[in-house]
Design a protein around this nucleic acid. Structure first.
Lengths: 287, 287
DNA sequence: GTGGACGCAGAATAATAATTTCATCGATCT
DNA sequence: AGATCGATGAAATTATTATTCTGCGTCCAC
């Protein structure tokens, strides 16, 4: 397998320190599997809580991790540093950069970035939009509505989930969450044509949740109508009071996702959907 | 309990310490004019370069300012601190907070309070968690990484999307976005067993994007490995540098979603995924 | 002008931290 | 099973750092 003369690279890199935090992090990740137990613990901690490394002392860090102080030193030396302090400098530099870059980004975020100026700003723009969506959702969704939606859904034996296209990921995640929470649900949104069969089993003792944003997918609307005719209680999530879905729902949420360069991140809807799922599970458990 | 004759010096009423950096700053400004020459120099430096105070030692700081070390100590004591270290803690706390501004607000919403006490809190808790995720994404995703991920993906003719279970909605939405944007992509995540066939067409001229959070779905890992072996460039989104996906990726994002009552809203990941999609489309259009 | 109080610098000291050393333990390979 | 090499943890050592102390100078009040 391995001969000693095979890889002389054990000695070559030791004198070369790292240029910054990021390269160090990559190196740690690369060598993580080859690390002894104690050094692995330290590696995990260093990547997980770099701030502690930046501020702490050898002994305070070693106590937090639960390893002897010498192990921390060995860790630094293992990665080519002269000692702990030399390694710590990287972590400190990182914090310096971090706080200045972060402040800059927050400003960008506050202003609401203009869409077309580069890939870096694209990310920030979407994050800004996401945050805005979250805040506006917090304002527009009243507790009463949320609570009654929970009542309706928790009254259902099986919860049918309706959504297409862009809205589909939302119910996809709900299905996952319901599964984890031990609730029965059906994703009536498969691309196969079996949905009709599925919905035939739905009745007044069940419940349905529909998601549809403009332009409203006709399949979703049709399925929702069908369910209503069969007496299935319906909760819906949409973006306008005039949505055809809202008109036929027992309870409906209006969530206006902030638009960024023509695309709406579904963050607020996702969060609402998840909160709804968990709340329903809680309500059911109680009853 | 405690039988020891507790230190009588434990009483610290006279020395009114400061509750945070901000109050200290105000106090310094207020007393600025009444300060002796040396202490004034130090005050000016402290307000001007708080980072240096946070990281430096007494002697390093005193050298930067051009005063003897003892003056720095006296400065701290002059403002009611026990010593330099006690004052330094405020400056360090400040840096910490700066990098997690939203943590406090989340706590305000009742972090310790059990999420089981009402449906209203459930929604608010999830929204707060979502917003914090967004903040943390802003901090942890560097522009360089984002940009190189865009490069890798925009270089692919077809983009293969890999994800299972909870991560699936993310790539689901990406598939929708790519479709709208006119980019070719393949969802290699169907529940049917045809994925193998699909991936056979992938080659070095394509690209792949994998999403996997702990616990990592073995199928995703396997597929990612298979693609890497075929020379397909890989970008991944995961929650730890130790993820098996990260290890084999050309570029990887680490997004830590804030946990609320055991569930993670994928808001930040969704936003990142969407931003990535749009940025890739922009880059492709340009070239 | 003189006495007193306060600020000051620099050395001395105490405290704490980083690093090295070394004996022991455990795994791996023969 | 025995030998070997690396990893480990506790303690010793060394370096650095914070803090205190003392004597000196300066400024103001009387």
């Amino acid at each position: 397998m391995r001969s000693s003369a095979d890889q002389p690279d054990d000695r070559t890199p030791e004198k070369a320190a790292f240029s910054g935090y990021q390269p160090l992090k990559e190196e740690i990740v690369r060598r993580q599997k080859a690390l002894p137990k104690r050094l692995f613990q330290i590696a995990a901690f260093a990547l997980d809580q770099p701030d502690e490394i930046a501020f702490g002392t050898v002994s305070s860090i070693s106590k937090s991790i639960g390893v002897p102080p010498s192990a921390v030193i060995r860790f630094a030396q293992h990665f080519g540093f002269d000692g702990f302090i030399e390694m710590q400098r990287l972590f400190r530099d990182r914090m310096r950069e971090r706080s200045s870059e972060y402040a800059e980004r927050l400003q960008t975020l506050g202003r609401g970035a203009d869409p077309l100026d580069g890939t870096g700003k694209t990310l920030e723009g979407f994050l800004a939009a996401g945050r805005q969506s979250m805040e506006s959702a917090l304002r527009s969704v009243s507790r009463e509505v949320f609570s009654s939606a929970v009542s309706v859904l928790s009254g259902g034996e099986t919860i049918y989930l309706l959504a297409r296209r862009r809205s589909f990921p939302i119910v996809g995640y709900m299905a996952y969450a319901f599964g984890k929470l031990g609730l029965r649900c059906e994703l009536a949104s498969s691309s196969m044509g079996t949905d009709g069969d599925l919905l035939q089993f739905a009745g007044p003792r069940d419940a349905a949740f529909a998601v549809s944003f403009s332009p409203y997918a006709p399949e979703t609307v049709a399925q929702a109508k069908a369910l209503r005719e069969r007496g299935v209680p319906l909760v819906s999530l949409t973006d306008s009071p005039f949505s055809p879905i809202a008109a036929i729902s027992n309870v409906w949420f209006e969530v206006v996702e902030t638009d960024y360069s023509g695309f709406r991140p579904l963050s607020a809807s996702m969060v609402l959907a998840l909160a709804l799922s968990v709340a329903v599970a809680e309500r059911k458990q109680w009853s």
